[in-house]
Each structure stands twice: as C-alpha cells, then as structure tokens.
Design a protein around this nucleic acid. Structure first.
Lengths: 247, 247
DNA sequence: AAGTGGTCTAGACCACTAT
DNA sequence: TAGTGGTCTAGACCACTTG
C-alpha cells in the first residue's frame, strides 16, 4: 500500500469514486488485501487517494452493495470472505427428521484428469489442449443421497487437487481451493433448468428414471472476474423451492 | 405538499435519511406523487425537510436502489411505474419461430365471485366472509397455449372487474388494475416449485399428464406493502430457465 | 481514552435537458 | 439560459468497539 501509488488512472472520464472502487478491487484481486482482513481506515484511504471522506465512502458503499466488503462500526472495513457453498439452499430445501434445516455432507466418487468439453473449456478460458480436473460428487443428508454434482477445474490452477486422495476432500470445496490452491471464489452465476432423471441420476438419487430434476449450472469466478470453476448440480425437483422478491 | 408539514416523526431514533425515505414512500402510497410523475426537485425537498442536500440524496438513493424512484440527470426524479407483468420472462423463455423473444397474449377463460381458499384469504388480509374475484387465464404464443394462470383478487378493491366483459380484459392485468380500480402494484414476491401436470393442465398446455411443470406463486402488493393480488402460474418445465448472480 | 465507521452539513462546480 | 440531477469538498459530531 505505502509503496504503491495510485498510478491507476484507468479512465479519467469516470467519476473519482468509480476509479477508487476499481483500484480497491484491483488490490483485493491481487491479494494486497485478503478476505477476512481489514482494509485501511477511511481516514487513511481518503488521505492516500487525496479525496474527501464522502467520495471515498461512496466508493466503499458500492463495494459493500456488491458484497465485496463489509463494514462494522467501530471495528473497520473488511474484505468479505465468500461462503456460498450453502447457496444451493436457496434452491433445495433439505430438512432432517425433526424438521430442522441441515447441511448435506459430500463424498467424491470419482476423479479424472481429462480434456474438458468444448463448452467447459471456453467458459473457463482454457487453452485448446489444457487438461481439466473432473470430479463427480454426491451430497448426502445422513446416508441419503440428495444431490449429484460434476465439477470441472482448470488443471493449471488446481494442480494440488489432481493427486489429493479422494477421502481427503471435505464437504466444502471452496475452503479447499483457497487452502491448497490459493484460489478464492468471489462470485458466481447460476442457471437453473428442469430436466428428467437419467438412469445414472435415478440410481444415484434414489428416484424414478424420468422423474423431474432441477439442474443448476454454476460458473464461479475469482475477484478479478476470471472463471475458475464450472459445476453442475442435479437434485430431485420435489426438494426444490425458490423465492424471489421483485422491486 | 405545501400544506402538509413533515409531521411524520415515525421514529426519532432512526437516521434522518431513513425518516425521509419513509415519508417519501408514504406520500407515494397515498397518491400524492403518482407513478410516472416527477417528485419535487432536490433543492425543494431539502428545503422542505430542512436537511442538507447530501442527506436528502441519501434517502433518494435508497428508493432508487429499491426501484421505487428513477433519476434522470437534467430532467428530474420520477416515481417508477412498475411494469413487471413481463417478469415471468425471468423464468420462462419463449421464442417465436424466428428465435425472437416474444410477449404472450392472454385470454380470460372464466371468472367467478366466490369465497377464496383460507390460504388466499389470509394472504390477502380479507375478512372471513369477504368474496374474492377468481380469474382463470391462459397465455398464448400465437395460438399455442404456454401458461395457465389463476388469479384471486379481493372484491372490495376490484369491484369493477366483477362485471367487466371477459373479452375486455387485455393482455396485461396491472394496467387494468390501475385504470379501472386505482390499484397500483408496486412489488411482488414469487415462490417457485416444480410439480407434475394435472389432467387439466395437460389438456390446456398441450403436454402429457405427469410431465414436469413449473409453478410460480406470486403475491403482489401496493406501495404501502398491502397484498392485493394472489396468482399462480403454471408452465411446461421445458420452457423454464432462470439465472442468478451471486455476490 | 483512542480509534473506527455512521451521520450530516453547507456549500461548490459539472453534465445534461429543455426552451 | 435556466433548471435539473451528478459529483465532490472539508469538515463536524455521534455511536460503537477495543484496550
């Protein structure tokens, strides 16, 4: 921070507060300020950037609205640690026997290092001959399988996962990405569709072939907006529910 | 506006800008400022409320973020006219023969004035013996039925629709509510589920009985947050697609 | 008590729209 | 040219957290 001036003038035509926002996300993307840590105080930042506190606050307001930062009065402003492995609960409502919401566990069934589909390859911005790591997972409530998942990762960023023993993958992938590969998921886009269970799905999820299933395709990206994971999740449509509020 | 002081001090503990926001939505809900019209200028409002322009702008920022107001530089700040009859396109992707996205037309099949289900009655906050207007609609692309809809409205607010000839209902309900009944839909909550087509659905939508269908339940409310419409829409799951961006 | 973010002021000047 | 919202300043004081 100290040694690095605000050289970045990406676009003088943009308002100052947008330039500030861009510079702050750049520093986060480059790891200068890490998730879970506090960024410098408003006073320090406004002095460094040579803007009034109101202008700096407006830049931070945008990042808070985007979910990149969180503010806590009296404590500081922090880079948000994204924890949306639970995001599927926005779609699938799982309950235990006593009606409580529960987190499913996960089990990696298979892993291969192979050439990805063309669609996956282009989505992840991979070179024509680059290999991908492909994981097949099942997620369970107790012993009951509820979700079936396929995950593709570019090998270049996730080399450590190519050799990790399958039983050492935990329930959550994103902490693993961060710990073993230094890859932090900052945002994601999900597309929902309805399909019918294939024979494999049916066997895995204990439903009838042809029964309706929800397909959630997710592309997850880092702070710089680069896609780093492609994932598809399938679950029985009977467990599906989603709520939207319209402005 | 001139005759009406800012008597409302709903909660002195709240920041001024939140009090301003509440007072502005109150005026909109009461019809003092109507959808499509401009509200007073920032200079007038900040003088009237006796706050600095920055404070007033923060209140308006909130309402813009909520989708209640829109600002246009050089022109003014306007009460947004909600137009989300097209919101189903967030769920169902319809295309014409040449691949263009199209708006479906609508046809009211049936209307009855009857006691609503208990669930509908309580959701709409209706008295125990109050009657509701129930409409059955089908929505079509060309001649092809794609969505089947049931709508319940409290009779007290929508009397005019109890007698309107069925062929005079247009394609869009909300402009009708506003024009004939003075009811403006300002927000809505939708819940999605997946089901299987009943015999009626199958016949109406030209799909096989038991085929997967998407059910969208919508509760629409006015500016004051009072629910005024309950609606359920059913469509073939094959036409369903939804995209979410996660922070 | 010191340090943080949260609220608010009283302006200035700029960019855009309309006439 | 007049009027609108958009940006920005240079502070002040308050509410909350931590030592």
């Amino acid at each position: 921070m100290d040694t690095n001036t605000f050289a970045a003038k990406p676009d003088d035509r943009l308002p100052r507060y947008q330039q500030l926002r861009d510079d702050i996300v750049r520093r986060i993307a480059q790891g200068e300020w890490a998730p879970g840590q506090a960024i410098p105080t408003e006073a320090e930042l406004s002095q460094f950037y040579e803007v009034a506190t109101g202008t700096l606050r407006k830049a931070i307001d945008l990042l808070v609205a985007d979910g990149v930062l969180t503010r806590t009065q009296g404590k500081g402003t922090f880079v948000r640690r994204p924890r949306f492995d639970a995001s599927l609960f926005r779609f699938f409502r799982f309950k235990s026997a006593d009606g409580q919401a529960v987190q499913p566990t996960a089990k990696v069934l298979d892993r291969e290092v192979a050439k990805p589909d063309e669609a996956v390859r282009t989505t992840l911005g991979m070179k024509p001959n680059e290999k991908a790591i492909h994981l097949s997972r099942v997620r369970l409530i107790g012993a009951e399988p509820v979700l079936s998942e396929d995950i593709w990762l570019p090998r270049s960023r996730f080399e450590a996962l190519a050799t990790l023993p399958l039983d050492e993958f935990g329930d959550l992938m994103y902490p693993l990405y961060e710990r073993l590969c230094g890859q932090i998921v900052a945002s994601a886009t999900e597309i929902l569709n309805v399909g019918q269970a294939t024979g494999d799905d049916a066997a895995l999820l204990h439903i009838a072939p042809g029964a309706p299933v929800i397909l959630v395709q997710r592309v997850a990206s880092d702070f710089a907006g680069t896609p780093i994971e492609w994932r598809i999740t399938r679950g029985a449509a009977t467990t599906f529910q989603y709520q939207v509020d319209i402005r």
